[in-house]
Computed example of a mutant assay.
Amino acid sequence: MHKNAVQQSQFVYLNGCSTPVLSRFSYSAEAPFTVGLAFRIEPGEWVEWEFARELLLTGLTEPAGIGDIRIRPDLATDENFLVLELESPDGYAVVEIHRDEVRRFAETTVEIVAAGTESEHLDLDALIDALTTARP
């Protein structure tokens, strides 16, 4: 990984599954507004989600999100976990993740790109060029 990117792997618990699942958070200063979350479903095969880093930062301390991804501390049963609800046309999942591990990942993203300065790290010209360049 580059010094402007971070990746952290950990095990998570999916609703209804007693065996933990390998997951991977990722972040890069090249896409400063988003974080990635992937779940390994088979060796070499991952299901990936991307969502706003701000959603993750807020969800560490209070409920956040009203769309396909919602994050909240699990204050009802165990405050050491975060609860992520993921919804898509293909299904719905509830994931429990160790809160301290997510906090460490989030803090590292803020060290790379301070919260509120994301737009300073976004190369809009390159993004526009990539979106408008015809591909064969």
Rank of each mutant, 00 (worst) to 15 (best):
M1K: 11
M1D: 09
M1P: 13
K3V: 08
N4K: 11
N4S: 11
A5Q: 15
V6C: 13
Q8P: 04
Q8L: 14
Q8A: 10
S9G: 11
S9H: 12
Q10W: 04
Q10E: 13
Q10R: 09
Q10V: 06
F11T: 10
V12F: 07
Y13Q: 15
Y13P: 14
Y13W: 15
Y13R: 15
L14A: 11
G16W: 07
C17R: 11
T19P: 00
P20I: 03
L22P: 00
L22F: 05
L22E: 14
L22R: 14
S23D: 08
S23E: 08
R24H: 09
F25H: 09
S26R: 04
S26C: 12
S28G: 12
A29I: 08
A29W: 10
A29G: 11
A29T: 09
A31P: 01
P32T: 08
T34W: 05
T34M: 05
T34A: 07
G36C: 07
L37G: 06
A38D: 14
F39A: 03
F39V: 03
I41Q: 13
I41H: 12
I41A: 07
E42L: 15
E42N: 13
G44R: 15
G44L: 10
E45F: 12
W46R: 10
W46D: 14
V47W: 05
V47C: 07
E48F: 05
E48Y: 05
E50D: 09
A52W: 00
R53A: 03
E54W: 01
L55D: 00
L55A: 01
L56M: 09
L56Q: 03
L57H: 13
G59Q: 06
G59S: 02
L60M: 09
L60H: 03
T61K: 15
E62R: 15
P63F: 01
A64P: 01
G65M: 06
G65A: 01
G65N: 04
G67E: 02
G67V: 08
D68L: 02
R70T: 05
I71R: 00
R72S: 12
R72V: 01
D74E: 10
D74S: 08
L75I: 02
A76H: 10
D78I: 00
N80V: 01
N80G: 07
F81S: 02
L82S: 06
V83T: 13
L84H: 03
L84Y: 03
E85Y: 00
E85S: 07
L86E: 01
L86P: 05
P89H: 09
D90P: 07
G91I: 07
Y92H: 13
I97V: 13
I97G: 01
I97D: 03
R99T: 02
E101I: 00
V102K: 04
E107C: 03
E107W: 03
T109M: 08
V110Q: 14
E111S: 08
E111I: 04
E111V: 04
V113S: 06
A115P: 12
E118I: 11
E118R: 02
S119A: 14
H121R: 09
D123K: 10
L124M: 14
D125P: 15
L127A: 12
L127P: 08
I128V: 15
A130H: 11
A130I: 01
L131S: 08
T133F: 04
T133I: 06
T133E: 12
A134W: 02
A134R: 13
R135T: 13
R135L: 07
R135P: 00
P136S: 10
